[in-house]
Each structure stands twice: as structure tokens, then as C-alpha cells.
Design a protein around this nucleic acid. Sequence first.
DNA 1: CAAATAGTGTCTTTGAGACACTATCGT
DNA 2: ACGATAGTGTCTCAAAGACACTATTTG
Lengths: 237, 237
Amino acid sequence: MKKTTSEEKEFLQQYDSSMFEKPSVAVDVLIFTIEDDTLKVVMVERSEFPYKGCLALPGVFVGIDESLEDAVKRGVKVETGLTDMYFEQLYTWGDVKRDPRMRIISVSYMALVSIDQLCAKSANGNIRDYLYPVEEVLTPDKELAFDHKEIIAYARTRIKNKAAAYSDIAFNFMSEKFTLPKLQKVYEILMDKPLYKANFRKKVSPMVLETEESTSGEAHRPSKLYVKNADYNALEE
Amino acid sequence: MKKTTSEEKEFLQQYDSSMFEKPSVAVDVLIFTIEDDTLKVVMVERSEFPYKGCLALPGVFVGIDESLEDAVKRGVKVETGLTDMYFEQLYTWGDVKRDPRMRIISVSYMALVSIDQLCAKSANGNIRDYLYPVEEVLTPDKELAFDHKEIIAYARTRIKNKAAAYSDIAFNFMSEKFTLPKLQKVYEILMDKPLYKANFRKKVSPMVLETEESTSGEAHRPSKLYVKNADYNALEE
DNA sequence: CAAATAGTGTCTTTGAGACACTATCGT
DNA sequence: ACGATAGTGTCTCAAAGACACTATTTG
């Protein structure tokens, strides 16, 4: 990795002699999207023991010269082809027996992406085949690999809390231009509860900017298109 | 660590051949307390390079058969002698160069403890000598070891947010019985802003239970003693 | 016009914030 | 009585919540 100085050698020798074995470190990535008005997460079916046939979160081991974030980007890229998306660290899971094969400490991250972006880059096979409704995989009788159900439940709670606080996470699921009814629907899905139209619009009005465009062609009044107000967070001071 | 089955061998071989070197995993513990109406954190002065002479957070490497929480308990015990205290995971720091000696991924935890408990168990030397005011170690010109200033700043923000939301974290700094003026002072220290007495008492009244006892002996009206209402969180549903 | 969805006005209730007041100790 | 801190009553104002209304498109 790097050359060691004489001062550091003492430490490294001491460390090597006291620690016989190191845990492995992985990142598990929860790629969330909204499809058919449903919050979904990317999962893969395990072809090997343990948990053969169960759904598991995609994950990669962290390389010795790779930051956690770089490992996440690598994992997301192999899974979806996407190179730029919003993600944030969730929690680190370190139970000794969480993986029966060997000691693996997992740093979990959640990535949020619109279904449009997700499908645009889907080169190998259809990414839609790997999307599973979150509420479905969280049902008690559904068996998932390792502690992945707990991890997904943790992420689900985080998403709900952030949406309820009207943070801007919902925008990660939107295309660039969107109508307020669509945005409201996304917040409702994330919060898992219905919202009053007028109140919702009061809340989000500082977070969005109206455009000149509108929807058309549907058998009802058209809806104005909005974009995210990039200055919103700056105003928060 | 454990015996491997034939199914698992394939995985382990594949893993071993693809990963030449593993990062080390440590937990860094931020032990916070309140002394002299000031939020303080336990730190130790480094006697070795790198960052010789700088303050650092206490930390331990995570053993191969040790959970993250067990590593935290071990670290807290060697540092303070305490065996039971509240702690929670903060964040995992994984920059490749965060430790110049070798690749170390650090899972940070914050522990919160009253000054009474902290001093009660202080066997070897005076633990008070290792307490440093948080705002002081966070000043820009103060050099701390590794990325520990960033970690402390992260924890400071977490504490502020939790106090501002009137979570029950403040109680971790109190003795079993306390007066409301003392509790208010603790919230003010954590939030770093003054509070109105009447409003504060309205807020915390469901979180506390009045006792029969009062303070006495001071040249002013005595103050009633309260205990934490253990049922409070249960009521939250 | 009817159906359907987009969008607005406003009332009520809740709670944060601010401030003034009363209460009770020791000296 | 006085200084000092403990503890309470209540007003204001802003935001959350609930609901009713108007507006604009297609068929």
C-alpha cells in the first residue's frame, strides 16, 4: 500500500502480532426507485448456499485502495450501469454471525433513482426484473438472505422520516420536469399516507420553480410542469 | 473461525483469490459528558507518530469474533471502567488515506454518560484529565489526529439535532433524580441556545415524573426532584 | 355539458415563542 | 424585607390540518 517509516514500523508490528485475522468489509447497496406508484428495491436471487433461492441485496467487497463511496459506485455501476446517482450511508452491520460463511462487516448505503434513469442505462437484461416492492419483501413470512430484511426495514424507516420532514429526497425519484400532483404522489408513497393537496402545495412551493410548460392531451385540465429549485437548500441558513 | 462446508468452499476460494488484502476495522468511541456546564469529550494525547502530541479519540480494533458493539464496550471499559452506558452508532469513515499508516475503516460510536457515573468508576488516574470541551477541540486552529475533528463535528451536530427535537438523549447526562432547571440547562448546553422556562417545562412534562423530594439548603426557593418517565417512549405510538 | 383532474381560499386547531407574573426559600 | 431562583398563566403568531370551492381540459 505504501512505504513505512521507522516510526510506523513499531505500530504495524504491534498491530500484526496482536490481530491474527481481520474481518472482511463489504458495502451493501439498496437501490430504490418508484415504479407503478410503488416503492421498489433492486435485489438478486442467490444461486449459492447459504440462502440459496432467497433474495439478497447487491453488495461488493471493499478493496484495500478503494473508499467506501467508490465501492458503492462500483457496485451500482455493475448492477445498473449508472455512474451518477444520489446515495447516502445508512448503517454498519457487524454481528459476528450475520454471514454464516465468514466474518463480514457490511456498510449499507441507499441509492435513490428515478425509474426513467434506471431503465435508460439498462444494458444487460431488463433491470425491471430485479425490482421488488419494498412492502412485499418486508412481509414477515418472506425469507431474505442474511440480515437484509433488517437492513431494508432500516432504510424504509429512514425514507419515511425524511419524506415526512419534507426533505428533498423525493426529487431523486422524479424526472427533471414534473407536475405537482406527481410530486405529491411520490411523497405519499414515501410517507405511506395520503396528503391534502392544498397543504402539500403550500409546503413544497419554496422547493420548486414553475416552468412555462404544461401537460396536455389528457381528458382533464392540464398540469403545470415544475423543476426543483436549486437555491432552496441555500436559503435554509 | 468455523468449519466450512463444501458449498461454502467455492465462495471462500473465490473470495480469497480475488481479494489480496483486507482493510482493518476499528471503532472510535466519542465519550461525551457534561462538566462545569460544558459539553466535553474524552480524548487522549498521542505519544507516537503520526500526529504525535495531538489529541485523538480512543479506539480499538474490532476482533474477528467480536461484534462492533462488543468492541465499543471493550473500548469504553478500558478507557473509563464503565460497563453499562448508552451508546449509538454514528457513521463509518472509510477514506483510503484517513490513517497514513495503513488502511483503517473506522466505525464511530458516541457514548453519553453523566459526570457522576464517569467519576465513580475512575480507577486508574483521574478521568477528568481526559475531558476536553467540545467547542474547544473543534476550533479551526486546533489540530487533532486523523479525521477526528470531522468525526467530533458530526457527533456534535447529531447531538444538537436530537436535543432540538426534544429526544430523550439529555437524560443520559443526568443523575437519576434531577430538577427541571438542571434538565433545562443540559438541553440548553446540547442545543447551544437559551430556552424559555415555561415553554421548556410544557415540552418535557410528559417525559418526567415528579417525586416527593425537593432540593433544600440554598438561599432561594427549593426545586422539586424528578425522574425520567420510563413509559414516555411507549406512549409515542 | 359531463367527467376528470388541476389548482385556490379560508377556517380551525395546535404548538412554538415570548413575556409577565406569582411562590418560596435563606439571610 | 430582600435577593435569588422556582414555578405558572396567558397572549401572539405561524404552521399543520381539514374542507370546500373554482378552473380547465377532452369527449
